[in-house]
Amino acid sequence: MNRWLPRTYLTLVYLLLYVPIVVLVVFSFNESRTGYEWGGLSLRWYEALFNNRAMVQAMWNSLWLALSAATVSTLIGALTALALHRYRFRGKKVLNGMLFIVMMSPEIVLAISLLALFLLVGLQLGYVSLLLAHVTFCLPFVVITVMARLSGFDERLPEAARDLGASDFTMTRTVLIPVIMPALLAGWLLGFTLSLDDVVVSTFVSGPSYEILPLRIYSMVRVGLKPEVNALGTLLLVFSLVMLILSQWILLRSKR
């Protein structure tokens, strides 16, 4: 087959994927307010961003939420993966299936079902409802990441630990956890990003007491072209890029 044809094609698609992102970054340094014309280099939109108290508050709230949602879902997800890997129990298939369904369901379906639940039990919509919802949609991703790691792992290690008299708990702590550590970190980072990015579920389960960044951005974007959004988007891009590189680096290093 021709060699340059596939390559040109790949390049073209990558270009299309990256043009909007480049536009965003470039225009975040644009002095002009209109958003279409170039008015010179400027950091004024970054300044405006950090002078907006509500925005900064929402940023902190979002970071806090992402941090806690990622942590909780990693803890529960890792335990789930271990249970699925190690134990035989009734309903294992059902458990697996439920996780798969959570991962596959359109976010909006998850969102309204959680909303219905929170209203029924009378949970105040705010940090706690957001946390529960975010952990729920992050969970399957952590489970999958950890399961993948576990499936390529030498079964004799835990057996050896057992034979040496370690309890199940001790064995998990001393043998399994170190093995799945990279997957835990990768899963944590994935959960963190998913939580930080979520609009659909958060729209339904957030309350006025805890405003988060994606919803702030949503209301800004709906109003029209706001150069602050470019600046914020660039910051988020850099932030997630760092996270992504970190997670890839961890995964690659652990393979060696």
């Binding site: 909303l115 209203l119 009378g122 949970l123 105040q124 919509l125 705010g126 309350g207 006025p208 007491s209």
Partner: peptide, 9 residues
């Protein structure tokens, strides 16, 4: 209506 008692507005 939806937030009802948890509406902190």
């Amino acid at each position: 209506k939806l937030l009802d008692e948890s509406a902190a507005y």
